[in-house]
Amino acid sequence: MYTGKSYKISEFLFWTRRNILWLLLMGTIPTILYQVFGFKWLSVPWPIVAFLGTAAAFVVGFKNQQTYNRTWEARETWGTTISASRTWAMMCRDFITDTDIAQQMIYRHLAWLTALRYQLRTTRNWESTGKSYNREYARFYSIPEKEIPIRTELAKYISTGELDTILSQHHPAMQLLNHQSNALTKLANEGRLDNSRFFELHKSLREFSALQGKSEKIKNFPYPRQYATVNRIFVWLFCLLLPFAMLKEFNELNNVASGMFKGQMVWLVIPFSVLISWVYTSLEQVGESTENPFEGNANDIPISQMSRSLERDIFEMLGKPDLPPAFDFRNNIVL
Rank of each mutant, 00 (worst) to 15 (best):
M1T: 13
M1V: 11
G4Q: 05
K5L: 12
S6A: 13
E11M: 05
R18I: 08
L23G: 01
M26I: 12
G27W: 00
T28V: 11
T28E: 03
T31N: 10
I32N: 04
F39C: 11
F39P: 05
K40H: 13
K40Q: 11
S43F: 05
P45W: 08
P47Q: 07
P47A: 08
I48A: 15
V49K: 07
T54E: 03
A55F: 12
V60G: 01
V60A: 07
F62L: 15
F62C: 06
N64D: 03
Q66L: 10
R70N: 06
W72T: 07
E73S: 09
A74Y: 00
W78E: 05
I82K: 08
S83T: 13
R86M: 02
A89P: 09
M91D: 03
T99N: 07
Q103L: 13
H109M: 10
A111N: 07
W112H: 14
T114A: 13
A115V: 14
Y118G: 08
R124Q: 15
N125A: 14
W126D: 09
S128H: 06
G130P: 02
S132Y: 11
Y133R: 15
E136L: 15
Y137F: 15
A138V: 06
A138P: 02
F140A: 12
F140C: 09
S142W: 03
E147Q: 13
E147A: 12
R151C: 06
L154I: 09
L154Q: 05
A155F: 06
Y157E: 08
Y157L: 10
E162P: 07
T165C: 09
I166Q: 10
Q169I: 07
P172F: 02
P172I: 02
L177W: 10
Q180E: 11
A183K: 13
L184I: 03
T185C: 10
T185R: 15
L187Q: 12
A188Q: 14
N189M: 12
E190N: 13
G191D: 03
R192Q: 13
N195E: 14
S196Q: 11
F199K: 08
E200K: 09
K203M: 10
L205H: 01
F208C: 10
E216P: 06
K217M: 11
F221P: 01
F221S: 12
R225A: 13
T229V: 14
W236D: 04
W236R: 14
C239H: 01
L240F: 14
L241K: 02
L242Q: 06
A245G: 14
M246K: 00
K248W: 01
E249P: 03
N254G: 04
A257K: 01
G259Y: 00
F261H: 02
F261V: 05
F261Y: 09
K262Y: 00
W267H: 02
V269S: 03
P271R: 01
S273L: 00
V274T: 00
Y280K: 02
S282I: 00
N292V: 03
F294W: 05
E295C: 12
G296L: 07
P302C: 07
Q305G: 11
R312I: 15
I314Y: 07
E316Y: 02
L318M: 11
L323Q: 09
P325G: 01
A326W: 02
A326G: 12
R330N: 14
N332F: 15
